[in-house]
Computed example of a mutant assay.
Amino acid sequence: MNPHLAGLIARLQEQPSHTGSLIITLIGDAIMPRGGAVALSTILDLCGGLGIGSGVVRTAVSRLSADGWLVASRQSRASYYEIGAGRRGEFVRASRHIFGPSRRPHVARLTLILMEAGESREALRNRLARLGFVAWQGVMIAPERPLPPSVAANVIAVTADADGDTMKRLAAKAWRLDAIAALYAGFIETYAALVGPAERFTPRDALLTRVLLVHDYRRIMLRDPRLPEAFLPDRWIGASARQLCAGLYAALRAPSELWLDHHALTRAGPLPPADSTLTHRFADLR
């Protein structure tokens, strides 16, 4: 095993167990572009390569199935899992958030939402949070955006602007960007040493490293609101982390896909070829 990968695995084993999340990363990144179904034996093989025991993996897969993330089937004595139909949209949205550019890079104004007291207030707050709003000083704020009619009809929406420094200062406090920046700094410290060596990884080591790379990056990205440039500090470290992740992903993709071609299985045999979504990841940085 490559010593760089061995170090990443040792780091993984020092952390609290995130086996279910790791499997979601594997399925969403490597398996979904190839149809979204894979044999349990493939999951066990790859998780075993990361030092995760089969019993822990089976328990995690069962929980993911109970929550609707995966759907199980059997053929003879072999088990297979595919993404649950009701969860595919969440995988697609997560992939866009992780691998795609900010959707509103040039927005420089705020939408402020004021809500009246009432039984629907908490439900509205939750829905606004899913739309990217954050609570700040008694109002909900987000970079300017249109609201769904069903939301707009039940709130008071105001658009506001400010000078650049004021907007950046507000965003840093409201979205706690210092904490997110610290996570990105840790990501860069962990993965910068792989630049160069990653190009020489074996197919299996490349896939295992790719899983860990995307897993760690995904955990940060799910906390990152992906704010437009006008809201971010100068020389935002998240941009450097994204460049690093994109470069490593490009180096690991071909050999890791080669391992999937020859070793990953579905009910019908080898995995089908990857669709075009795989080559579109980080496309804006190329």
Rank of each mutant, 00 (worst) to 15 (best):
W236K: 07
Y217C: 02
V92S: 12
H4M: 13
L70G: 03
A39Y: 03
M221P: 04
I98S: 01
M167T: 15
P146A: 07
R104D: 10
R88I: 11
I43W: 00
I156A: 14
V61G: 00
S73R: 13
T277G: 09
Q13M: 10
L252H: 10
L213W: 01
P148C: 01
A37D: 08
R96I: 10
L112S: 07
L244V: 04
T202K: 06
R145Y: 05
L258K: 13
P233F: 09
R127A: 12
E116D: 11
I188F: 06
K173H: 11
Y217P: 00
V107P: 10
N154G: 12
P270E: 07
R235H: 13
T59Q: 12
S76I: 15
C47I: 03
M1H: 10
R58G: 04
A30N: 08
V158I: 14
A66F: 10
R210T: 00
A206G: 02
M167W: 08
G7Q: 09
E14R: 14
L265V: 10
L50T: 02
S120V: 14
R88F: 09
I52M: 03
L213R: 01
L278R: 13
W136Y: 15
A206M: 05
I9W: 07
G247D: 08
D29I: 00
A162F: 08
G36A: 05
V211M: 12
W136E: 06
G53C: 06
R88V: 11
Q243D: 14
L213K: 03
R210A: 05
P16N: 05
I156D: 12
P148H: 02
H18L: 09
V71E: 15
L227A: 08
D161R: 12
R235Q: 13
R204L: 12
R121P: 07
P33G: 02
G164Q: 12
G48H: 01
H106M: 11
S17L: 07
D161V: 07
S102A: 14
R130K: 13
R219F: 07
V214D: 03
A129G: 12
R226W: 11
L271P: 01
E257D: 14
G247Y: 08
S102Y: 08
Y217K: 04
V214K: 02
H18V: 09
S41I: 10
Y81N: 01
G49N: 06
P225L: 05
G132R: 01
A198F: 03
V158Q: 13
A251V: 04
I156T: 14
M32G: 06
P270H: 11
L8T: 03
T111P: 06
V139S: 08
L112M: 13
L248W: 07
S62C: 05
W236S: 08
D45L: 14
G7C: 05
T202S: 15
A30K: 03
G36H: 02
M140I: 07
D284N: 09
S41E: 07
E199H: 08
A135D: 13
P143F: 05
R63Q: 12
A181N: 09
G68L: 06
Q243K: 14
N154D: 14
D165Y: 14
G100E: 03
A264D: 03
Y184R: 02
H4V: 14
L208S: 00
F133L: 05
